[in-house]
Simulated scan of single mutants.
Amino acid sequence: MDMASDDVVVDGVRLAYRDSGEGEAVLLVHGTPSTSYEWREVAPRLEAAGYRVITYDLLGYGRSERPVDRDTSVAGQTALLDGLLAELGLDDVSVVAHDIGGAIGLRLALDRPQRVRRLMVLDTVSYDSWPSETWRAVIDDHLGEYHGLSQEEFDALLTRQLEMTVSEPARMTGDVLAAYLAPHRSATGRASFFEHQVRHYDSRYTEELTGRLGDLAVPVRILWGEEDRWQPLHYAHRLATDIPGAELRVVPGAGHFVMEDAPERVAEEILDFLGAN
Rank of each mutant, 00 (worst) to 15 (best):
residue 1 M to T: 15
residue 5 S to H: 07
residue 6 D to G: 09
residue 7 D to V: 12
residue 9 V to L: 02
residue 10 V to Y: 00
residue 16 A to T: 10
residue 20 S to L: 08
residue 22 E to P: 04
residue 23 G to S: 05
residue 26 V to D: 03
residue 29 V to A: 05
residue 29 V to T: 09
residue 30 H to N: 13
residue 34 S to N: 14
residue 37 Y to M: 00
residue 40 R to D: 02
residue 40 R to S: 03
residue 40 R to H: 13
residue 41 E to Q: 14
residue 44 P to Q: 08
residue 44 P to I: 11
residue 50 G to M: 06
residue 53 V to A: 03
residue 53 V to C: 02
residue 53 V to L: 01
residue 54 I to K: 00
residue 56 Y to A: 02
residue 60 G to W: 00
residue 63 R to N: 14
residue 64 S to H: 01
residue 67 P to C: 09
residue 70 R to D: 07
residue 72 T to V: 10
residue 75 A to D: 15
residue 77 Q to W: 05
residue 79 A to W: 03
residue 80 L to D: 11
residue 80 L to W: 05
residue 80 L to N: 08
residue 80 L to A: 12
residue 83 G to L: 02
residue 85 L to A: 11
residue 85 L to Y: 02
residue 86 A to V: 08
residue 87 E to D: 14
residue 88 L to T: 13
residue 90 L to Y: 03
residue 91 D to P: 12
residue 91 D to G: 15
residue 94 S to I: 08
residue 96 V to C: 08
residue 97 A to Q: 06
residue 98 H to Q: 12
residue 105 G to D: 08
residue 107 R to V: 11
residue 109 A to T: 07
residue 109 A to G: 07
residue 111 D to H: 13
residue 115 R to H: 05
residue 115 R to T: 11
residue 116 V to K: 01
residue 119 L to T: 12
residue 119 L to D: 09
residue 120 M to V: 10
residue 122 L to F: 10
residue 126 S to R: 08
residue 129 S to Q: 03
residue 134 T to Y: 05
residue 134 T to K: 10
residue 134 T to C: 11
residue 135 W to C: 09
residue 136 R to E: 09
residue 136 R to N: 13
residue 137 A to Q: 12
residue 138 V to S: 06
residue 139 I to Q: 15
residue 144 G to S: 10
residue 145 E to L: 10
residue 146 Y to W: 12
residue 147 H to M: 09
residue 147 H to G: 13
residue 151 Q to S: 12
residue 156 A to L: 06
residue 160 R to Q: 09
residue 163 E to V: 09
residue 164 M to I: 10
residue 169 P to M: 02
residue 173 T to A: 10
residue 175 D to L: 06
residue 179 A to M: 07
residue 180 Y to C: 11
residue 187 A to P: 05
residue 189 G to V: 14
residue 194 F to H: 07
residue 200 H to I: 04
residue 200 H to Y: 15
residue 201 Y to T: 12
residue 202 D to H: 12
residue 204 R to A: 14
residue 206 T to D: 01
residue 208 E to H: 06
residue 208 E to S: 15
residue 211 G to W: 05
residue 212 R to A: 11
residue 214 G to E: 09
residue 216 L to W: 08
residue 223 L to I: 11
residue 225 G to H: 06
residue 225 G to E: 05
residue 226 E to C: 05
residue 227 E to V: 11
residue 227 E to Y: 06
residue 229 R to A: 15
residue 232 P to A: 10
residue 234 H to Y: 11
residue 235 Y to W: 14
residue 239 L to G: 06
residue 241 T to V: 05
residue 245 G to Q: 00
residue 257 F to T: 05
residue 262 A to L: 00
residue 265 R to Y: 03
residue 265 R to S: 10
residue 268 E to G: 14
residue 268 E to R: 04
residue 271 L to D: 09
residue 272 D to M: 07
residue 275 G to H: 01
residue 277 N to W: 04
residue 277 N to R: 15
